[in-house]
Design a protein around this nucleic acid. Sequence first.
DNA 1: ATGGTGGGTAGCCCA
Length: 265
Amino acid sequence: MKLRLATWNINSVRARIGIVEQFVKTYRPDILCLQETKVMDSAFPKAAFKKMGMHGIAIHGQKNHHGVATVAKSALPEMHKRDWCSEGDARHVLTPLQTARGAIDLHNFYVPAGGDVPNPDENPKFAHKLAFLDEMIDWSKDLKTPSIIVGDLNVAPLESDVWSHKQLLKVVSHTPQETERMKTMQEAHGWVDIMRRIKPEPERLYSWWSYRAKDWRASDRGRRLDHIWVSPELADAVSHMEVVEEARGWEKPSDNAPVIADFDF
DNA sequence: ATGGTGGGTAGCCCA
């Protein structure tokens, strides 16, 4: 049983429904996990996804900000949401999957970006981000079901996940406070970072390029903020992974590129 | 050192 899974921070699903369709047509994911949908559930463009052949739709949205959605070719009969940090934010949706390897929990996350100042005493957004990661660490310790975490975790954990390790050490997304928590979280469950299993360090591997660069491709000041992690027993099922950098150059792009993983269960 | 670009939505907030 082959399964193509993709994750993409889309920065408004309504503003970018055209390139979502382009992505689905070109890359044919069986399951697509979106973050920053920026739409209430009542206004989610369900019809457009059904037209693309994505009939399973699990959404957790809110007005204006954040919001996640997992869509799939097959039905997604079950979904669960969790209110991380009790903030009332739409940052997570769980869709249990039935595979040839049995039940697998697919968790789609949008971790808080954390603002600009990397000090939790001065910046409540950074404090929220650290608390969110701490909650994910505790949660990882107790997980029993084989699981997949995907999404925009807003942290680039490794040196070659950023264009300049030295210059980004004090920039939110690559501070030791964040990268150490990523490592602790991986150890708490045994999470396997399958992007790095396929393309190990020190190869350059980015999924996000700022809108503010004059020429994102030429300057290539990227960061790997988007991730696909799996429980240890699922690691050998991964046969392929790619960051679809091409999509960063499409018409009116998101600043994040999609990440694809192929599984053979 | 600074400000650069986007989306959502009604005034700035957030990324």
